[in-house]
Design a protein around this nucleic acid. Structure first.
Length: 665
DNA sequence: TTTCAGTCAATAAA
DNA sequence: TTTATTGACTGAAA
């Protein structure tokens, strides 16, 4: 670069050159000092973070020990509870013998003796659960079948157990109240309403934006798939085994405890890397990072103002520093990922989610870049309101969750208007609705009017690529059909539209980018380019599959017959078309998705190029079958067409087989 | 395991 | 050069 400047400045006098060299040397020296200082700062941040993490790990270890101690205690108490239960049972039995009234009220039918011991045990455990004397469920049900028959009989009377429950309830008004009034228990049949529990859990999870994976892991000790199954198709209480009832008991318990729900919500947010609204004082490591980066930003701005060669220098320095930070954090992340691996599933632990107070290093650094740039722009526009939105947001973050008259709607409003859309993800967005069509329309107009490219808009405003922006702007989904992640883009666009300096900023960035590209071209043109770093990488990249029109026709025809093709159909299609099965299945996923997006019901009629003679989309692809080409590269259009027709016929025959199977059945 | 939403990079079209 | 399309991928839900 310096060489470039030198050659460009050759007409100047030697004195001027010397002055330039001296000035350059000073700049370089200053830059080096700045870089060193910032590296020290980063190191300091890293050390502090490491210390903090170590502290937290220590705390975690202590807590784990406490939990172990409590579990041991519970285990030892379990024996006590067993003995107590036996004694009470015996006492109840003797009372039952003396009290015919009790028998007539609570005695089950004459086949009571056949009621399984297991059921009694389950009820006992229900009781324990309701009493809050929870125990590790997987170990809480010792195999009672190992007991001598007499013992089983002595402890298996439902009469005694019901009395025991009654006795327990009588002695504990709160529990009695919980059992009788929580509404989950059908008074007549003494059963839990599993469908209702499942429904309420689903609502609670949806409302709090808690994933089934987290809920399953932390509350039920089950996998996400099982949770989904249980919630979607809850079996009636009577049809459940003791093991099957456990999740419902836990769910009921969960629903009755608002604190549990809120705790789980926070866990979920942390696992997703969302910065919580209220950060406890002991969790301020990333605040520290932010402060230091803010400080660095101010210093860099100072450096920037003294720079002689162009406005991009500070950005490059920031990028450089943040790149280093990213690298450091990645290393750090790998180191700290080791401890809780046994408590969280590997998929969740992976990269970033483990350290729940931060996002993945890349996201974290990118968000800082965005924020720093955003605030740098704010600083360079003194016309902006002195009570800047980001500072409003910062002050909001320090507020207690439920302090004062501030409502959730207020939070949302401030969030939407402020810089940090990420914070919205922790909120209930049900009451917020944006007109996505209107937003995209206005954004498109603004971009066109001001000659701002989708690329710059995507990179600077949404953090997306040009293609994604294009998709978003040309096919906006209705607000209600968007996921939380999808909504964020529209919130960002909305916020951008509200920003009085939006166009000004982007135009500036766009111009810079153009200048940079131009200079890069000039640079390359002079032969100073050191070579294509990505060349080797690109060489090994798999070329993109481009489906021919005929292949697409065949796939669309197949879709018409079977929108959800079986594995067999996919394999057959792939084989006939000479494609990978993944390509075929991806095509179906994408096609379905895009049909949904565009609201097309009959894509074939709207998209397929049909032969004039054909009357149906399928028949358009059907031509006389010829011999398959031996060499795919040598095949001509007719041969390709033949393969397509075979594929379509394959699909058709599969369909016919199915119809025949159904008919014969 | 399948399906889906969101996204990207490569490529085609304007 | 910008924008649109599309095959592929990831992570989450079912």
């Amino acid at each position: 670069m310096d060489f470039c400047v030198f050659t460009a400045a050759s007409p100047r006098s030697d004195g001027q050159k010397m002055m330039m060299f001296t000035s350059r040397d000073r700049d370089i020296q200053r830059l080096e000092e700045e870089v060193q200082r910032l590296q020290r700062l980063l190191q300091e941040v890293q050390e502090r973070t490491a210390n903090h993490i170590a502290l937290l790990q220590q705390q975690l270890a202590n807590k784990s020990q406490d939990i172990e101690r409590l579990q041991d205690k519970l285990q030892s108490q379990q024996d006590y509870e067993k003995i107590k239960t036996e004694l009470r049972t015996l006492r109840a039995l003797s009372q039952t013998a003396d009290d015919p009234h009790v028998v007539s009220v609570s005695s089950p039918p004459s086949d009571v003796s056949s009621v399984s011991v297991e059921n009694d045990h389950v009820i006992q455990r229900e009781l324990h659960h309701l009493l809050g004397k929870d125990e590790p469920l997987s170990e809480s049900c010792p195999d009672i079948s190992g007991l001598p028959v007499e013992n089983r009989r002595s402890s298996s009377s439902s009469v005694s157990l019901h009395m025991f429950i009654k006795a327990e309830n009588d002695s504990d008004g709160d529990v009695s109240c919980a059992v009788e009034s929580d509404g989950f228990m059908d008074e007549d049949e003494r059963e839990f309403d599993t469908a209702r529990i499942a429904q309420q859990v689903k609502e609670a999870l949806q409302q709090q934006n808690i994933g089934q994976r987290v809920f399953g892991h932390y509350v039920l000790g089950l996998s996400q798939g099982t949770v989904s199954d249980i919630l979607a198709r809850p079996k009636p209480w009577r049809k459940l085994t003791s093991r099957g009832r456990e999740p419902f008991l836990r769910m009921k318990h969960f629903l009755s405890d608002e604190h549990s729900i809120q705790t789980l919500r926070i866990i979920q947010e942390r696992l997703r890397g969302i910065v919580p609204w209220v950060r406890p004082p002991e969790m301020s490591s990333d605040e520290v990072i932010r402060n230091i980066l803010d400080q660095s930003r101010l210093e860099l701005m100072d450096v920037d103002s003294r720079f002689l060669c162009g406005g991009d220098a500070s950005e490059d320095v920031i990028r450089n520093i943040l790149h280093q930070a990213e690298h450091e954090m990645q290393l750090h992340s790998h180191v700290t990922n080791e401890t809780p691996r046994d408590t969280v599933k590997p998929k969740e632990v992976d990269y970033g989610t483990l350290n729940p107070s931060v996002q993945s290093p890349t996201d974290f650094v990118q968000s800082i870049i965005r924020k720093v740039k955003c605030e740098m722009d704010e600083d360079t526009h003194p016309s902006a309101s002195p009570a800047s939105l980001s500072s409003v947001n910062r002050s909001l973050r320090t507020l207690p969750v439920d302090s004062g008259p501030r409502t959730q709607a207020d939070f949302q409003l401030v969030c939407v208007e402020s810089c940090e859309v990420e914070s919205l993800t922790g909120l209930d967005l049900q009451s917020l609705e944006l007109d996505t069509g209107s937003i995209t329309q206005r954004v498109k107009e603004a971009l066109t009017l001001n000659n701002i490219g989708q690329r710059v808009f995507g990179e600077e405003v949404l953090g997306l690529t040009q293609s994604s922006v294009s998709e978003l702007l040309s096919h906006p989904k209705p607000w209600t059909k968007l996921s939380l992640k999808g909504k964020e883009n529209f919130i960002r666009m909305h916020r951008w539209l509200q920003d009085p300096h939006n166009v000004q900023r982007l135009t500036k960035i766009d111009q810079r980018a153009r200048l940079k590209r131009d200079s890069q071209r000039t640079f390359d043109g002079h032969g100073f380019c050191l070579g294509n770093h990505t060349g080797a990488f690109e060489a090994v990249k798999r070329p993109r599959v481009v489906l021919s029109a005929q292949e697409k026709d065949a796939l669309r025809a197949a879709y018409q017959l079977e929108p959800y093709p079986s594995q067999y159909t996919i394999e057959r299609l792939a084989s006939q078309l000479g494609l990978q099965t993944s390509t075929v299945s991806n095509w179906f996923y994408n096609y379905r998705s895009r049909i949904r997006r565009d609201g097309l019901t009959e894509p074939l009629q709207t998209r397929t190029v049909q032969s004039p003679a054909s009357t149906s989309p399928v028949s358009s692809s059907l031509v006389p079958i010829k011999q398959e080409p031996s060499d795919p590269e040598m095949e001509d259009d007719t041969q390709r067409h033949t393969r397509v027709s075979v594929a379509v016929q394959a699909v058709t025959s599969v369909k016919t087989e199915k119809v025949e199977d159904l008919a014969s059945f």
